[in-house]
């Protein structure tokens, strides 16, 4: 192979850069995010496990069902509590602090959901 003298070091440098994040953080335990749950409510619309992984799926289902199929605007939890099937008027009623709840994980996972381009987060002064 020709050009070995340059290719091998170049590859090494490239790999070094690519794996920078891994070895830079090696040995340091990362703190998983701890979103702050509402204190006044014990129960969500679905089990925590499901909500943690699939809340966005649920929100999409609500939207399509209500908007396109004329589905109900309210739902009932396992324990019989009635809730509004809505991000802005439902979820955010209990989880009324977007920064302490939504943003904690979203920032950690580096995802930027476009919900808040349109939907309004709870306004402190309004409450």
């Amino acid at each position: 192979m020709y050009g070995t003298g340059r290719i091998i070091p170049a590859l090494a440098i490239f790999l070094g850069f690519m794996t920078f994040a891994v070895w830079y953080n090696a040995g340091q335990a990362q703190q998983p995010p701890k979103p702050e749950k509402p204190k006044d409510y014990k129960e969500c619309v679905a089990p925590t496990e499901y909500m943690r992984t699939s809340h966005m799926v649920l929100l999409n289902e609500w939207r399509d069902d209500i908007l396109r199929n004329g589905g109900p605007r309210t739902g009932v939890t396992a324990n019989g509590t009635s809730y509004t099937r809505s991000l802005q008027n439902g979820c955010m009623n209990c989880h009324n602090d977007k920064k302490k709840f939504c943003d904690t994980c979203h920032t950690y996972a580096a995802v930027k959901p476009y919900c808040w381009d349109c939907h309004l987060e709870p306004m402190k002064e309004a409450m």
Partner: peptide, 24 residues
């Protein structure tokens, strides 16, 4: 802002919805 209703984002079309959220 009306906190009970969403706004829209840049780059989409919008129009009267016959107050479907109020009808509900």
């Amino acid at each position: 802002l009306n906190p009970k209703f969403p706004a829209r984002m840049r780059g989409v079309v919008e129009k009267c919805n016959f107050c479907t959220e109020r009808l509900a």
